[in-house]
């Protein structure tokens, strides 16, 4: 099988990421049945689906947290298996998790550098706190995130600020190729939302970063995405670029399928 000849990918287009029949079950519950999706270079892909459809599970597989039961993942046409989060990161995959993966007790700059600290002293790995703090405040200033102090524990920040920190942490990496955003806009105010949307748009344009966004707000998705995939019951059921589907059609489709699910549930 040629690297780009998957069931979902149009031939000849350079796919930075492709999954083939990815499946994962938790005991009797099949979270993912057979997920085939592809991501082109510089593209922003929106993932939609009802709660429990398997979106977050997919993200956690792609980020190295879960190992799939079956199926394959290709990065730039080469099959990869992620053994850990570190491993996925080394392949250039960065994630903003739904729960943001911030530690409330730690300061903003420690969170920004968590598990990627600047250290010295070789094996002892002493923290270079002053360097990290300066780098953190410079970086946050650069991308326009406004927080009172990088020394403040994350617990003292507002929901939107926390989310902004989580996104900033992901996009800070230099080797980033793929950015996974699991509901990055939930709980954000209008100002932060437009900031993050602007950030996503500029990232995909200039840095050749490919992005997968999960969001329940379809209006936001249509502002930032090039293509939409719908996940239902652990499978990708719809794959349409924005020229092929309108916001109204997508909403109509989701509502209809939700009604079908409810009816099917009643029939049982």
């Amino acid at each position: 099988m040629t690297p780009n000849g998957g069931t979902n990918g149009p031939a000849g287009v350079e796919n930075v990421l492709r999954t083939e029949q990815l499946s994962l079950s938790f005991g009797p519950v099949a979270a993912l049945k057979s997920v085939n999706l592809h991501l082109e270079r510089g593209e922003v892909l929106g993932l939609v689906g009802n709660n429990g459809a398997g979106k977050s599970t997919l993200v956690k597989i792609l980020t190295g947290l879960y190992r799939p039961d079956g199926g394959r993942i290709y990065l730039d046409g080469e099959e990869v298996r992620f053994r850990s989060v570190q491993d996925a990161r080394q392949h250039g995959i960065e994630t903003v998790f739904q729960d943001l993966a911030l530690v409330d007790e730690l300061s903003v700059y420690h969170n920004l550098f968590l598990n990627r600290e600047y250290t010295r002293g070789g094996w002892f790995r002493f923290l270079r706190n002053r360097t990290m703090r300066a780098a953190a405040s410079r970086f946050l200033d650069d991308i326009g995130i406004d927080i009172p102090s990088v020394d403040a524990p994350v617990a003292k920040l507002s929901g939107g600020q926390r989310q902004a920190i989580a996104v900033a942490r992901a996009v800070r990496q230099e080797n980033i190729k793929i950015l996974l955003l699991d509901e990055p806009l939930a709980a954000m105010g209008a100002k932060e939302t437009s900031l993050i949307i602007g950030l996503i748009n500029s990232l995909s344009k200039k840095a050749n970063i490919s992005i997968i966004v999960i969001d329940h707000n379809y209006t936001h998705l249509f502002e930032i995405c090039d293509r939409i995939n719908v996940i239902q019951h652990g499978q990708v059921t719809v794959n349409k670029s924005l020229s092929e589907i309108s916001l109204e059609e997508l909403i109509e489709f989701m509502v209809q399928s939700f009604r079908r699910d409810v009816a099917a549930g009643d029939a049982k």
Partner: peptide, 22 residues
């Protein structure tokens, strides 16, 4: 002063976040 100590506090504060951070 060390990464190990920082990671102890991170795991104790929120082990799921620490795991997601690798």
């Amino acid at each position: 002063g060390t990464t190990f100590g920082l990671h102890i506090v991170a795991v104790g504060g929120n082990s799921e976040s620490a795991r997601e951070s690798g």
